[in-house]
Design a protein around this nucleic acid. Structure first.
Length: 812
RNA sequence: GCGGAUGUGGUGGAAUUGGUAGACACGCCAGAUUUAGGAUCUGGUGCCGUAUGGUGUGGAGGUUCGACUCCUCUCAUCCGCACCA
């Protein structure tokens, strides 16, 4: 009977389903492993990236299950979001119906890959039961002041009709639809992630070596901590009067307190309140006011690329140490959202300040010795009063201390990270469970009324927020005073759902009604031992999920600090050198590969073609090669004549059989490192292929039986169907139940091959009895290399045990 | 501009971490089998050379008995950040 993947695969998938083979046992005395691949968005069909992601996770889950761990390996659906709503606009289909139909379809596709997921723990984030607990967390955050409402300038995507968080703007464009982002002033909800910035930064150290360096670096840069001095520039008397006494001054932040004596002007962001006030009160020329407004309204990206531009405001501040008057300008390179939207400018030692000063012929004053201006390096201070002669690093400390002593400035830590805007003006998301009461203000919905669900009867047109437009949904009573009130119609960013799903899986499904996160289960299962997903989430999801973990911990839901112990970022699947995409027409449909070759072939190819971290180039003939290997493996059933590992006296075997056993056990020895550390499945598969090749070169039945017994054990996590089928047939699956002991004796050989090199160049080789004395080895090697040693004087002999002999020679 | 990563046959990729470079696979070549194609099997396959041999891990130096591996410089590609004061 030849290899028939379809039959074998559907049979085992059915059996696993019936046996509920992949549910965790719940036995808390067993060691645990929580293996999690990032859950998919139910877009409609799976793609090769999914296959890769889940093939890696499944291999690990199956490996640990076999090693006796209780394994949690769940799957779910990141089910809220824009595409469902777009489909609704286009086809008039309700987003919920569209989503659940997609889930149904994709569940079948993933099922056909034979992935060992816990079925009982599957959920979609749009399930009301999931929303219920999420809304409770949001209410708790609201009560603790961690979630707040504020009107600010936001990133607005006109094509998505919604606001975006900072992290979701890439190169000034929407991360989802690539539309340029506009700035708008709007009220919205924010989560105070910045108050966790320090912990989020510090705990990255504990992930060192367990997360890819690249991701750690990206997160550190995104959080962007910097330390410096914050002080206030006081306006001159005359300037105060000009501003009707409404402003005394403003704060600035600097990391270069050492250059304080080099300040020659100061600059405000065009959005700064003082600038806004001056425009409003027509304190500037109309012409200039117009130009400033145009600067302020430029998009983020546009502005970053624009030429430096600025205008004097006709006001001055007083230098806090020298008392000198300093001109105040407004400039387009000053960011409103950072450090108070104002800077002290030191053109001699800052490139931006220099460029600006040169452009507008502003004074430049050097205060640090060193190279050409602008000079940003270190050195001794000059022209800096009592700080002259100090090294600039020391001066930083001393000057900050000086400010503190005088009570005019503080040491300050600033972060680039900004608070997470979670409002979305869309329908298909989790409603924010807050209510606007004309008397009580913004209040939380009562717990017993959760979840607040979405209305079914909506018209989704893409114009405006369907919840806002719904005739009745938003009208309610205030939970405090009973007055007529209105529900919040914004829904939550979908990244909120994916920020805590890793905890939800740990809850026993029987308790899903009564609890959102169960402390005891979380303590047992968390953190996720191995998380697997794409690098594109290096900031977004991974930062939010880390933050949520800490926030929920502090709200008393569990005791975990970091959600993901180890992270593997898999590379993309490419075809013809570029990412598979419909627009390029270079996609390969997983279903058709499974249909033609079977799931095992797809899994084998994808794990064999490249290490998981690297990009993977899809190759049709490579797939056929994988299929060929499985066919060959399957046909070797006939070589197996024993139903377990037979007794073998190693020394009595012929050389080829010894060699085969050594290859088999080498593969076995390699497997632990591959599954637990390196994840280089490609090399394990190569080792298995080598072992099979070596088995074919020998004839001993017992060695065959032992070899197949072990190789199937190693292959089961990678190609589970064929491995289980053959194991069932040949060994009653006994070979899959536990790890197999390594027989060290197979690595002991009678002779060892030594390479013979002369001056580091390999010339020959020689068989040396194992255990030979150094002198024997050298003389045998000299014999083998005599052709090259003839007229030479041996200066030095180097013996690397078991490897080679190197003769260092020179002409006589 | 700043930061990070990667450069090994025609291709995907190995190399026990300083010790025989190119495992394993794809492709290709030759042969066997087959009515033919496909499939399968056997052998070969870094480059130059008929050959003894030479040469070879992006390039140039260096350390070492010995370097894909360590150091310096350099080139290329990819990724991330991008006025964060």
């Amino acid at each position: 009977m030849s290899y028939n993947p379809k039959e074998i695969e559907s049979q085992w998938q059915r059996i696993w389903e019936e046996e509920e083979a992949f549910e965790p046992s719940g036995d808390r005395k067993k060691p645990k492993k929580y293996i999690l691949s990032m859950f998919p968005y139910p877009s409609g069909r799976i793609h090769m990236g999914h296959v890769r992601n889940y093939a890696i996770g499944d291999a690990l889950a199956r490996y640990y299950r076999k090693r006796g761990y209780d394994v949690l390996h769940p799957i779910g659906w990141d089910a809220f979001g824009m595409p469902a709503e777009n489909a609704a606009i286009k086809h008039g289909l309700h987003p919920g119906k569209w989503t659940y139909e997609n889930i149904e379809y994709m569940r079948r596709e993933l099922g056909a890959l034979g992935l060992s997921f816990s079925r009982k723990r599957e959920f979609a984030t749009c399930d009301p039961l999931y929303t219920k607990w999420e809304q409770e967390f949001i209410i708790r955050m609201f009560e603790e002041g961690l979630l707040y409402r504020e009107k600010t300038t936001v990133n607005w995507c006109e094509s998505c009709h919604t606001v975006l968080a900072n992290e979701q703007v890439e190169d000034g464009r929407c991360w989802r639809c690539d539309n340029p982002v506009e700035l708008r002033d709007m009220p919205g909800y924010y989560i105070d992630i910045v108050s966790y910035a320090q912990e989020l930064l510090d705990d990255l150290d504990s992930l060192e070596g367990k997360w890819p360096q690249q991701v750690l670096t990206m997160q550190r840069n995104w959080i962007g901590r910097s330390e410096g001095l914050e002080f206030s520039f006081e306006l001159t008397q005359e300037s105060r009067e000009k501003l009707s006494g409404l402003f005394k001054g403003y704060n600035v932040f600097t990391t270069r307190a050492d250059t304080i004596y080099g300040v020659t002007y100061s600059a405000l962001a065009p959005e700064h309140p003082i600038v806004k006030y001056m425009i409003e009160k027509r304190l500037l020329d109309d012409d200039i006011a117009g130009k400033i407004e145009r600067m302020a309204n430029m998009g983020e990206r546009e502005r970053a690329q624009a030429q430096k531009e600025g205008y004097p405001l006709g006001i001055s501040v007083i230098h806090p140490l020298t008392g000198a008057e300093i001109e105040v300008w407004t400039a387009n390179f000053v960011l409103a959202a950072y450090g108070g939207g104002a800077v002290m400018a030191v053109p001699a030692h800052d490139e931006r300040d220099f460029e600006f000063a040169t452009l507008y012929s502003l004074p430049i004053k050097r205060v640090i010795e060193g190279g050409e201006l602008p000079y940003t390096g270190g050195g001794k201070l000059i022209d800096s009063a009592e700080f002259d002669g100090l090294d600039n690093e020391e001066a930083k400390r001393k000057i900050i201390e000086h400010f503190q002593k005088l009570g005019i400035g503080e040491r300050k830590v600033n972060f680039k990270l900004r608070n997470w805007g979670v409002s979305r003006q869309r329908y298909w998301g989790a409603p924010i469970p807050l209510i606007h009461c004309p008397k009580c203000g913004l209040v939380a919905e009562k717990r017993e009324n959760l979840p607040i669900t979405l209305p079914e009867d909506v018209e989704i047109t893409g114009e405006g927020n369907p919840l806002e437009n719904h005739p009745t949904w938003k009208f309610c009573k205030c939970p405090h005073c009973g007055a007529d009130a209105e529900r919040e119609t914004d829904t939550l960013d979908t990244f909120v759902q994916s920020s805590w799903y890793q905890f939800r899986y740990t809850v026993d499904p029987e308790k899903w009604e009564e609890t959102g996160i169960d402390r005891e289960s979380a303590r047992y299962w968390m953190p996720v031992d191995q998380y697997i997903g794409g690098i594109e989430h290096a900031i977004l999801h991974l930062l939010y999920a880390r933050f949520f973990t800490k926030a929920l911990r502090d709200l008393g839901y569990h005791d975990i600090d970091e959600p993901f112990e180890r992270l593997l970022t898999q590379g993309m699947v490419l075809k013809d050198g570029s990412k598979m995409s419909k627009s390029k027409g270079n996609t390969v449909d997983p279903d058709s590969i499974v249909e033609k070759f079977g799931a095992d072939t797809a899994r084998l190819f994808i794990l064999f073609a490249a290490p998981p971290q690297k990009e993977l180039e899809w190759n049709d003939s490579g797939v056929e090669g994988a299929y060929r290997f499985l066919k060959r493996l399957y046909s070797r059933r006939e070589k197996v004549k024993h139903d377990s590992i037979p007794e073998i006296e190693h020394s009595s075997l012929q050389a080829a059989s010894k060699e085969a056993r050594a290859k088999v056990y080498e593969a076995l020895r390699k497997s632990e490192d591959v599954f637990e550390k390196s994840f280089s499945f490609n090399t394990l598969i190569a080792a298995v292929m080598e072992a099979l090749n070596a088995l074919e070169r020998q004839k001993d039945d017992r060695v065959w039986s032992e070899g197949i017994y072990i190789l199937l054990n190693l292959l089961e996590p990678i190609v589970p169907h064929i491995a289980t089928q053959m194991s069932e047939e040949l060994f009653g699956r006994r070979n899959l139940r536990k790890s197999i002991e390594i027989r060290e004796e197979v690595f002991v050989t009678d002779t060892v091959t030594y390479a013979v090199s002369i001056n580091g160049k390999r010339r020959s080789e020689v068989e040396v009895p194992s255990g030979a004395e150094k002198e024997t080895i050298i003389s045998m090697a000299a014999e083998a290399g005599s052709k090259w040693l003839g007229d030479m004087q041996i200066v030095k002999e180097i013996v690397v045990p078991g490897k080679l002999v190197n003769f260092v020679v020179k002409p006589v």
